[in-house]
Write a protein that binds this DNA or RNA. Structure first.
Length: 229
DNA sequence: GTCCAGGGCCTAC
DNA sequence: GTAGGCCATGGA
């Protein structure tokens, strides 16, 4: 699915976002494990809520694979209450930690020694890690070439008329991976900038056309559709 | 009071 | 392979 000037358009959007907001320097975390825990905890909840949960885990000494495996469900759930769905997320954290311990003896170095696509399949087999979470782990914790897509990305591309019905997660991910340079920094900032634009800047109208049409139209020219959107 | 936030799983068709 | 229900906090 290669479009003629799609690469140009995607890079144009990126450059406009970067110029407007500057580098976002994701992921806001100190360690790789913290990135992974954060990626699970931020599922369908604001980063503010998720971030509080990560801090609580850290404060109570639970921010490590072994601690999460050995701690009782209720103890973890209590610390991550602000992340919403805290019972499910407790299980998800435990699932990942059990996978890491049993398969890699707890070593993230060993885990990340695999190629992106191979490791992606493995992560997707962990109950609680879906596509977006897997890609976030690969990119932001493992610094691997795996583009992170999400609902914001889809909406953004729809406004530009780029999707034309193709809309599954993997289709959108491939769209980027096949049409922009394979560069970790670019992948990192691009996704972060989309989230920042759609959430932080346009949060007053998160699901409306106005947000992504009006506001972007003042900042971003889309050379693909030959229009301001 | 309502709406939504950096999803994913399970089930039914 | 996809639509719908479920999970179940905090801020605007």
């Amino acid at each position: 699915m290669h479009f003629h000037n799609l690469e140009k358009t995607l890079l144009e959007i990126y450059n406009r976002l970067l110029k407007a907001y500057g580098p976002r320097n994701w992921w806001p975390a100190r360690t790789r494990f913290e990135v992974i825990a954060g990626a699970i905890l931020t599922q369908n909840v604001s980063w503010k809520n998720a971030s509080t949960a990560v801090s609580n885990l850290k404060k109570s000494g639970l921010l490590s694979p072994l601690a999460i495996i050995s701690a009782p469900h209720k103890q973890i759930a209590l610390q991550i209450k602000t992340s919403r769905y805290y019972n499910q997320k407790t299980a998800k954290l435990k699932n990942f930690c059990n996978y890491l311990e049993s398969k890699y003896n707890g070593s993230l170095n060993k885990m990340f020694s695999h190629g992106a696509e191979t490791l992606r399949k493995e992560l997707l087999d962990v109950n609680g890690i879906g596509k977006e979470t897997a890609d976030s782990i690969l990119l932001y914790a493992g610094r691997k070439l795996s583009f992170v897509s999400d609902a914001y990305t889809k909406r953004l591309l729809e406004r530009y008329g780029i999707l034309n019905g193709l809309s599954s997660y993997d289709e959108i991910r491939r769209l980027f991976m096949e049409n922009i340079p394979k560069d970790i920094y670019l992948y990192n900032e691009y996704h972060a900038l989309i989230v920042h634009h759609c959430y932080a800047v346009c949060k007053s109208e998160p699901s409306c056309q106005t947000c992504l049409v009006k506001r972007i139209s003042r900042n971003i020219y889309c050379s693909y559709s030959n229009n301001f959107l």
